[in-house]
């Protein structure tokens, strides 16, 4: 039998900063995670779609989602399974708390070494941390080629992937040898919807620690159906250097957070042409001011 191509999508669960209400920030100026719905990072959905397209083309491939986060981040994996992923890995534990981008990409790369995928697909940027560094850092740590701002999968075969990248003015098409890390832009195709049969099939999927808390009946049910078991890695499982995890692995320290209230309004002049108005709308939507 031919080798199965293993595609891993890195996905992050983020607070829904697009629908920010008045309770979004605590009085101390930090993000009030409890008040915001936890969602699939939007560009990671674009990444999932591209991974699924790769699978559609290759045929003999699997798509798994890797996420680092608290237990409830398993929701992201289930969501991906509803939309076409075969399963997922939840990387979870208190050792990871307080990670900056360096520690995050270190932890993720340890897990990826263990999983050993043929292709890694990530979103360009998370809407909470907003650094767009994790994908590229993972590529560096694993010493893999990276394709950023991916917009369209042109082809994937013979150990190579051909990708159209979005640039500031126009686009370019590049070929990368596999394995590689691809980070996907929001201009890429939107993710396919949940699929009815997949939702019915996977709705009871649980990660290891969730299972431990479940009723015996549920446990037995999942044990009979291995596809419902979401693999969970603790820190030890991925053989890290403990010093490089979480707080201790994060040189970035947030010193102070200030609420900035704009005093002077930035002025911008637009013509009354549809083109300009359209561009303004796009901008407001992109900055999550509208939509």
């Amino acid at each position: 039998m031919e080798k199965v191509t293993k595609i891993v999508v890195m996905a992050k669960q983020v607070p829904d900063t697009r629908n920010v209400g008045k309770d979004a920030m605590t009085p101390e100026g930090t993000v009030n995670r409890a008040a915001l719905a936890a969602i699939f990072n939007p560009e990671d959905l674009n990444a999932l779609e591209m991974a699924l397209q790769m699978k559609d083309r290759i045929g003999n491939a699997t798509v798994y989602v890797l996420t680092m986060g608290p237990q409830r981040a398993a929701d992201v994996i289930r969501e991906a399974m509803f939309r076409g992923a075969d399963g997922g890995y939840l990387l979870s534990g208190k050792e990871f708390a307080g990670s900056d981008t360096l520690a995050t990409s270190y932890a993720l790369s340890c897990a990826l070494r263990k999983i050993n995928p043929d292709i890694i697909v990530a979103g360009r940027q998370a809407i909470d941390g907003d650094t767009a560094q994790v994908g590229p850092q993972v590529a560096e740590k694993l010493n893999l080629p990276q394709v950023t701002y991916a917009e369209e999968l042109i082809d994937i075969k013979d150990g190579e992937v051909t990708i159209k990248r979005r640039l500031e003015r126009g686009s370019e098409t590049v070929v990368a040898p596999l394995p590689a890390v691809i980070t996907v832009n929001s201009s890429a195709k939107e993710c396919r919807p949940r699929n009815a049969k997949r939702v019915m099939k996977f709705k009871y999927a649980l990660a290891t620690s969730e299972m431990a808390a479940a009723e015996d009946k549920t446990k037995a049910f999942i044990e009979e159906r291995p596809y419902l078991h979401i693999v969970e890695f603790s820190a030890q499982d991925v053989n890290p250097d403990p010093e490089q995890l979480g707080m201790s692995g994060s040189p970035t320290k947030v010193k102070k957070i200030e609420n900035v209230v704009f005093q002077a309004k930035e002025a911008k002049s637009l013509t009354a042409e549809d083109k300009d108005i359209e561009a303004l709308m796009q901008e407001l939507i992109a900055s999550h001011t509208l939509g």
Binding site: P193, R194, A196, V199, M200, K203
Partner: peptide
């Protein structure tokens, strides 16, 4: 529960 979830997909599309 499955009906509800499927209708939610329809609602989304």
């Amino acid at each position: 529960d499955s009906y509800r979830r499927v209708l939610e997909i329809v609602g989304d599309v």
